[in-house]
Design a binder for these strands. Structure first.
Length: 209
DNA sequence: TGCCAGGCCCTCTTTAGGGCCTT
């Protein structure tokens, strides 16, 4: 059976975690997952859920995310939420901003419940560094402003950040498609571009023409 | 008591160091 049997190749999930800190290896856990499922550039589904990590989050995290210990007290545990999320992604390819961060938490939280995923990860930040080298910086909020993407002013909440990342992804796809036949998702191509050394980028982009 | 991430990228590099980005 193909790993993408349940999730077509032209469907991908853009996701974002809010967490208790920076490293699952240091005991940090996820506290919120938000995701937008895109099919041929259109939003077809969303996933948004707080989850209780089993301990109190720091004041910094409460302030940074707006997610309070009170909000988490009534939330389901990480295992229950992540099981549902594993069903949601179900073989889809995945996109996140600074994907190495979200991938670490996805790996850790799914491993904790004996689940896995089959899709491939691409990092929107690495791709943005290639496509927008003149941006002030490559933080998600800065890129959204740089590219003129509309948003609702909510930052550092999982679904809002996932939606902005999805919009940034589609904007980058549109910029790449300018003058090119890019009617298909080209997920593998975008992953290749995001990891192309700077010195080779011009040649790779030229190969698309 | 003090410390505590990790992958990618650039450069004053490659026998390394430091900034960026995520919470």
């Amino acid at each position: 059976m193909s790993p993408l049997t349940h999730c077509p190749a032209d469907t991908l999930v853009v996701l974002d975690f809010e967490t208790t800190g920076l490293s699952p290896n240091q005991g940090d856990r996820a506290i919120e997952i938000g995701a937008v499922k895109l099919h041929r550039g259109e939003v077809v589904d969303r996933f948004s859920q707080l989850m209780n990590p089993g301990f109190r989050v720091s004041g910094f995290i409460e302030s940074y995310t707006g997610i309070t210990n009170g909000m988490l007290a009534g939330a389901p545990g990480c295992g229950e939420v992540m099981a549902a999320f594993a069903d949601f992604i179900d073989g889809c390819n995945l996109v996140a901003h600074n994907a190495s961060f979200d991938q670490r938490f996805l790996d850790a939280e799914l491993a904790a419940i004996g689940r896995d995923y089959a899709g491939d990860f691409v990092c929107s930040m690495l791709l943005a560094r290639r496509l927008y080298p003149d941006a002030p910086n490559h933080k998600l909020g800065s890129l959204v402003a740089y590219r003129g993407i509309r948003h609702d002013g909510v930052f550092h909440r999982a679904l809002a950040d996932a939606q902005m990342t999805a919009d940034l992804w589609l904007a980058m796809l549109a910029d790449l498609a300018s003058g090119r036949d890019m009617t298909t998702p080209h997920f593998a191509l975008l992953k290749k571009l995001s990891r192309t050394p700077k010195a080779q980028l011009t040649r790779v982009l030229a190969s698309l023409d």
